[in-house]
Amino acid sequence: MIAVIDYGAGNLFSVCNALTFLGIPHEVTKDAAVLDKADAVILPGVGAFPAAMEALTATGLTDTIIENARKKPLLGICLGMQMLFDRSDEMGDTLGLGLIPGYVSRIPSQRVIIPHMGWNELVITQDCPLLSGLDAPVYTYFVHSYQAFCDDANIVAYCDYDGKVPALVTDGGFVFGAQFHPEKSGEQGLMMLRRFEEMAR
């Protein structure tokens, strides 16, 4: 069973729709005991970093999430991915979960349309179980104005948006973050969710 963390994130339902479609057992929860017994955890998220971090902290789950991330797969999606990092400067400085070293800041290019919205091609730089079996080109759906800044070692795939935008990141262990929305990225996105579930077995 995959625990989908419920702290009021807007894309919670889309994520659950995709898991249901794939026949993947899941439970929407804000209960630490459910997280502890889950095989894997998904942290969804859309919106602004400070408000989301505040809402997540209010569930009292942050320590449980960090502990579980040492022993079972965790996937952060969109803002949920950004929350895996140390901090973000969106609307002031806010601490994240600190599971992947790096920070989140505004997409730096002055030449591009913001938000980065639409389908962008992944440039895959490392093997990753989430991407196994996917045929190039892999296009995924993005919508964000802030991006992660981190070491190349933590980047599994990036996309080009007048600069390198980390698209899929990892701590090298069980923690994964997707800046894009796999639940809205068509067949290829669904395949990634399927791979995530297989990792949890």
């Binding site: 889309s14 249901t20 759906y141 068509g186 996105g189």
Partner: peptide
């Protein structure tokens, strides 16, 4: 539709 179609 949202249960069956996984694009925005």
């Amino acid at each position: 539709t949202a249960k069956q179609v996984f694009v925005p």
